[in-house]
Amino acid sequence: MTDPLVQLEQLTIRFDDRVAVDHVNLTVSRGDIVTIIGPNGAGKTTLIKAILGLQKATTGRIRVTPGLVVGYVPQHLSLETTLPLSVRRFMALTGRNATDCEKALERTGVRHLLNASIHHLSGGERQRLLLARALARQPDLLVLDEPAQGVDINGQAALYELIRELRDELHCGVIMISHDLHLVMAATDHVICLNQHVCCSGYPADISTDPAFVETFGQRVAESLAVYHHHHNHRHNLHGDVVPAGSHQGGCQHDHG
C-alpha cells in the first residue's frame, strides 16, 4: 500500500464562534484523485488552505510526507489589467528553467500562446496556463480549486481528462474542489461530500444514492447522477473542437448517455 502524501486526522478549524471544518479525516496517496464537493460555505476552500499550509488548524493534525512538492491551481487568477504580462514571463515566475516551463505548456496544450498576453486568454486557456504553472514543479500532489471555473462544457470535459492523464504520467495525488458534479463523477476516484463535516464519502458510482448526498443536493440531482454514463469515442480540445482520438491536444473522449 502506498504511503499517504497527506493525511488529515480529526481536523477542525474555527473562526471565532463559527466552525468552518469539523473533525474531518482525509487521506490522499499517490495515484488518488479525490474530489471534495459540497454547498457554498461548506468549508471546502478552508480545507484546501489547511492542506496548503495557509490555514492553521484549531484542533486535529495534518500529516504531510517529507519533501512533498505541491502544485496548486487556484480558482481565480487576479491580475492588475494595466500590468503587461506575457505567458512566458508568467511561467518564469515559477523559478523553473525555460525548458521545463515550455514542456509544461506543451503538455497542457497552450505552448502556442507563449508570447500572448495573459489578459487576452480565454477561460479555458487561462486554466490550462495555471495547470502548466503547477505542472512545471513536477508535483507529488496537485491541488485544484474549481479547475474548470469559467470553462465551457466541452472544455471542462477536456480539462478533467487532462488531469487524469497527468495523474497517470506523474503518479501524483490529486485533490480537487468542484461544482461540476456530472463531469466530476466521471473524472474522479473518490468523492467527499463536505458540509463542515464529512456528510458522506465513497466511490462516484455509490455516492449519489447516499441519503446524506440526496439531502445535501436534492433528489433530482441524485437521480440525474445515477443515470449518467461516460463513454469514450471522441475528443474535444480546449476550444471545444472535436479532435482525433489519441491526440494530446488535451481532451476528453466522451459520449453522454
Rank of each mutant, 00 (worst) to 15 (best):
93 L>S: 11
14 R>W: 10
39 P>N: 02
8 L>V: 08
155 G>Y: 01
221 V>E: 08
240 G>Y: 03
176 M>A: 10
21 V>E: 03
5 L>Q: 05
105 L>F: 01
32 D>Q: 14
34 V>I: 15
227 V>P: 08
116 A>W: 06
22 D>N: 15
67 G>C: 13
153 I>K: 01
248 H>F: 09
46 T>I: 08
82 T>H: 07
56 K>C: 06
239 H>T: 10
191 V>K: 03
247 S>L: 13
166 L>M: 10
199 C>M: 14
181 L>E: 02
74 P>M: 09
206 D>I: 08
69 V>Y: 02
257 G>N: 12
188 T>A: 15
159 L>A: 05
165 E>D: 00
236 H>G: 02
31 G>M: 03
71 G>C: 04
167 R>E: 13
62 I>L: 11
236 H>P: 00
215 E>Q: 15
202 G>P: 08
128 R>P: 03
167 R>L: 06
89 R>D: 15
29 S>D: 02
39 P>A: 02
200 C>T: 15
73 V>T: 00
74 P>W: 08
117 S>W: 03
27 T>I: 15
47 L>Y: 01
172 C>H: 00
3 D>N: 15
232 H>C: 06
103 K>Q: 11
251 G>A: 11
19 V>E: 12
254 H>L: 05
219 Q>K: 14
240 G>P: 10
194 L>E: 02
81 T>F: 09
1 M>Q: 14
233 N>C: 05
53 G>A: 07
79 L>T: 07
146 E>H: 12
15 F>R: 14
123 G>A: 05
9 E>Y: 11
157 A>Y: 03
176 M>V: 09
66 P>L: 12
90 F>S: 02
250 G>H: 02
31 G>D: 08
126 R>D: 01
163 I>R: 06
107 R>D: 04
6 V>F: 08
50 A>N: 11
134 A>K: 04
136 A>C: 09
67 G>N: 10
122 S>N: 11
133 R>Q: 13
232 H>L: 07
29 S>Q: 12
174 V>G: 01
133 R>S: 01
213 F>I: 14
153 I>S: 11
75 Q>K: 09
64 V>L: 00
20 A>C: 15
119 H>Y: 10
7 Q>I: 11
